[in-house]
């Protein structure tokens, strides 16, 4: 009944959904690198990144609004960073009141960067189920087994945590209501008072989490869980032509941005040379 739009999986059978989770995670990371590579004020690079996200969204068949909604949750953070830039950046010439042209450009730059990163990240979680995501991370972390890192256990913990988030949200809601019915007040008073008011919620939540963990452990034991040694996997990740295409596209994006950066750098070098 709750509206949790950020990071919730949008089931579909699209090209992007069918991609290997490992490839998708790698592509998402590469994409974020690309966003960070766009050098200051060269918005053409951002346009290329935006085009990539739009393309990926179209191919994934996730409605644009769903993807855009993810931005809503961090809008405060974005606006806050932009305002900092607007009012406190003293470089450049003043265009209006205390606002400088460099401040304006920086604000725009920050907004574009954060938004593009959030859009990319949410597209990943919208097209990849938590289980696949955990499997993907496990797959990518596999080399760490060489240094005895418990990759399988780590991934299992992660997927169980993901599975229990909605359950615990419901539980918190129930406990809050029960304590409110006993007159608990979570809305008034200073920050210390409010923190103290949370004790009657946190303690029952903690206790119930332990109880759940106990029961879950019994349930897992009952289903013959014995660690990773002899386990098989029902869903095997497979690198296919889809993943190859994805990797090629994101590689193209990075090359393009690097090229643009170089082009601008050369241009400014040429300008300097001309001036000399």
């Amino acid at each position: 009944m709750r509206d949790v739009s950020f990071g919730s999986y949008f089931p579909s059978n699209s090209f992007v959904h069918k991609m290997d989770a490992r490839a998708k995670i790698l592509i998402a990371i590469a994409y974020m690198v690309a966003v960070f590579l766009v050098s200051a004020f060269h918005f053409l690079g951002f346009a290329a990144c935006l085009l990539f996200v739009i393309l990926a969204t179209v191919v994934s068949k996730v409605p644009f609004l769903r993807v855009l909604k993810s931005v809503r949750t961090i809008i405060f953070f974005v606006v806050f960073s932009a305002i900092l830039q607007l009012f406190f950046n003293k470089k450049g010439t003043v265009v209006f009141w205390v606002i400088t042209d460099v401040g304006l450009l920086n604000a725009g730059f920050i907004i574009a960067r954060i938004m593009l990163i959030v859009l990319g990240a949410s597209l990943l979680t919208l097209t990849t189920s938590p289980v696949e995501l955990a499997d993907g991370i496990e797959g990518l972390l596999c080399p760490l087994k060489w240094i005895k890192f418990p990759v399988h256990e780590f991934a299992l913990i992660m997927s169980i945590a993901l599975r229990f988030i909605p359950t615990l949200i419901d539980e918190t809601d129930r406990i809050i209501k029960a304590q409110k019915a006993r007159g608990a007040d979570f809305e008034s008073g200073n920050i210390f008072k409010r923190a103290k008011a949370l004790i009657p919620v946190l303690i029952p939540l903690l206790i119930s989490s332990f109880r759940r963990a106990d029961e879950l452990a019994d349930a897992m034991d009952s289903r013959c869980y014995a660690g990773s040694k002899t386990r098989t996997r029902y869903k095997k990740l497979r690198f296919t032509f889809r993943d190859l295409i994805g990797v090629l596209v994101v590689a193209g994006l990075i090359v393009g941005i690097v090229y643009l950066n170089g082009f601008y750098a050369l241009n400014s070098l040429a300008e300097i040379a001309g001036a000399l």
Binding site: R174, I175, K177, A178, Q179, A181, R182, I199, P200, V201, I203, P204, I207, S208
Partner: peptide, 10 residues
Amino acid sequence: MFQYPEHQLF
């Protein structure tokens, strides 16, 4: 009083 009220003891 909700279901399983003993779960709100703290």
